[in-house]
Amino acid sequence: MDWDKLRIFHAVAEAGSFTHAGDRLNLSQSAVSRQISALEDSLNVPLFHRHARGLILTEQGETLNRTVREVFSKLSLTQAYLSESKIKAKGELKITTTSGFGLGWLAPRLERFMTLHPDIEVGLIMEDTDLDLGMREADVAIRMHPPRQADLIQRHLANFTMPIYASRSYLDQHGTPESIADLAQHSLIGFAGASPPLPDAFWLIELVRRQSHGSVRNRLSINSYPAIAIAIANGAGIGSLPTYLAAAHPDLVRVLPNEPVPTIEAFFVYPEELKMSKRITVLRDFLLGEINPGKH
């Protein structure tokens, strides 16, 4: 298979039309169409269903595009690694993490990191679902669970707990609970959604329900931990937050401080191909220097 034809095929598959792919590749629509027809002839399979409204990959086209996307991604990763200085950290560094950790902990510290490393261009992608590092959706991830992909390198960063918090105004108005069972009489704020970014997202609601043997006033459910933190800080109710996010709201009051709470393990994760990358090394060292596990 010809590499140029595969490059053009991938562009067409991603764009969904010969015209849009041609614009990206600086080729005419007819030139792109000829290259795709030649590739289909050489493989003896149709790669696209041609419709008036655009192109749709055939089953064979889907299979080829998955492979081509992976190959080009690996080539891009290798190119970035080979062109990177081994002495000075420079170039683009795409970091992905959860919205809670990104907003509450990482974003406020990025200015300090960029001052230390002025030749690094940082891209922060906050997603509560895991991006595919192997496909170059990001260079490095900070995740609140061990990586599930076997080909990724992981470094344990820190443990964070998930205490129970309320605002002073809420406690002044509704009283301070003295036990988990007491929380059943309060307005609880919890996570909403089938795919929470933290492993123990529902622990407090479930514990209160078990210990109170009755209904729980889960009056507010939100699918975003930063939004939950804002709601608690503004007196909407009581809820559990990771300490790295609660720290962004210094007026929060810890409720039932002697009760055991879940622990979140944070991991620094990156592809095997980047294990010698200077950009990855300096970011890892910066994060370890910023995080003091004894405070969490």
Rank of each mutant, 00 (worst) to 15 (best):
I230C: 11
S212P: 00
L256D: 01
A227G: 05
V261R: 11
L220F: 03
I238E: 05
E265M: 09
P226W: 10
P250D: 03
G239D: 05
A233R: 04
I264A: 04
I232Q: 01
H213I: 10
L256I: 06
A247Q: 07
L241T: 02
P257H: 11
R210Y: 06
V208I: 13
H213D: 12
A246S: 04
Y244C: 02
T243D: 11
Q211I: 09
V261A: 09
P226N: 15
I222T: 04
Q211D: 13
V261K: 07
H249M: 01
Y225E: 08
T243Q: 12
S224E: 07
G239F: 05
S240M: 01
A233V: 02
A233H: 03
G237A: 09
A236H: 15
G214Q: 13
G214L: 13
D251L: 05
P242D: 05
A233P: 03
L241V: 05
S224V: 08
Y225D: 02
N223W: 04
F267N: 06
P262E: 06
S224W: 11
V208F: 10
H249I: 00
T263W: 12
I230D: 06
P226M: 11
T263F: 10
L220R: 05
V216G: 03
A247F: 08
V208P: 06
V261P: 02
D251F: 05
S240Y: 04
N218C: 15
E259W: 15
S212V: 09
A233E: 00
V208A: 07
N258H: 15
R254Y: 07
A227S: 12
Y225M: 12
L220T: 01
G239W: 00
S221R: 12
S221M: 09
Y225C: 08
F268Y: 06
S240D: 08
R209D: 14
I230N: 12
V216N: 05
N234M: 06
P242R: 06
N218R: 14
R210H: 10
R209A: 15
I238P: 03
P257M: 14
H249C: 00
S215Y: 02
N223S: 12
S215C: 06
P262G: 08
S224K: 10
